[in-house]
Design a protein around this nucleic acid. Structure first.
Lengths: 164, 164
DNA sequence: GTAAGTCATTTGCGTAGGGCAAACCATTTA
DNA sequence: TAAATGGTTTGCCCTACGCAAATGACTTAC
């Protein structure tokens, strides 16, 4: 009962560093995304839609961690540019299912191309291999989403795509 | 001119994922930091001060990537609680050198303890080992700071501590 | 020694992000 | 038919944050 000595030492704190790095990337990204008519939140939304597959607005709001009333405006932006599509769910016509359009996918690709320059700068201290490592860790950490519990529990009709 | 086929494929994009994960951690962290009288930005500042060592306000602003006028208010908060200390630089008395106080270090430790719970939740999908990996990648990525070029160039009197 | 530049500070302004609540419509469920 | 739910709109609020201008203290160049 002598409380496992070595095993239990707390892991280092990622929170602040995450904040730090993400701030750096985000501020720079604003600059390169602006010409495309996008802002960081749009990029995030498009990315989530591609990586997690289409989803209900509620579920999407939960995944993104933003208020659903704010999501509406966000989606309005994206829909106005034809980057996403809202369909009424056949099973429950109250719901909107949000989908990435072809235009949206292309725009996303273009945005990521622009972002590459930003990341080259912000992640300059990492080797390419390390960047990949970082990517997969982030991917893995964000994959388990509130949505998984939420949607998976009652609406598994469209299994999310995950990873690309 | 057939453009190198395999070698040059772009690495995956971390930007959006960073944004995503950091938002999750940040929003939750607000809750657990509030009782300590801190907000995420304070935690970030204290962390940077500990990990990078004391620095000029200008340098600190550059590192944090925030406007120096905004930093003033932030430091006022921290100084009011005696968590940091502003000393006039002996070499150039126009400058303030910002230092973490003992109280600040303790508060930081306490804050990190509170953050552990948040990270346990937000990074639940990662093993402890992976969290350490993530930590060191983030540490490495943020270590090369604008400050390094800036301060290192002309004021190396106090070599930054880096890593703990 | 005077003038010009620099650092920190304060104040004020503007914008964006984003939570929250209320009211509304369409639709489903009890 | 009544109650609950998903999405939408509007309106209010607070926080974060950049930018600009003015001030005082100090340093450096002439």
């Amino acid at each position: 009962m002598a409380s496992l000595p070595v095993v239990n030492q707390p892991p280092h704190q990622c929170g602040a560093l995450l904040d730090h790095l993400s701030r750096r990337v985000r501020t720079r990204s604003e600059t390169v995304l602006a010409p495309l008519g996008l802002r960081p939140r749009h990029l995030l939304t498009l990315t989530v839609l591609r990586d997690h597959g289409s989803s209900t607005q509620q579920a999407l709001a939960a995944t993104l961690g933003i208020d659903s009333t704010n999501l509406v405006g966000l989606l309005n932006d994206l829909e106005a540019d034809n980057l996403i599509e809202r369909r009424r769910s056949p099973e429950d016509r109250r719901r909107h299912v949000v989908d990435l359009t072809d235009v949206g996918a292309k725009k996303l690709a273009k945005a990521e191309l622009a972002m590459a320059a930003v990341e080259d700068e912000a992640l300059a201290a990492l080797t390419l291999e390390q960047r990949e490592q970082l990517y997969s860790l982030l991917q893995q950490a964000t994959a388990t989403t509130d949505i998984a519990a939420c949607v998976g529990a009652e609406d598994e009709s469209v299994p999310p795509v995950m990873y690309r």
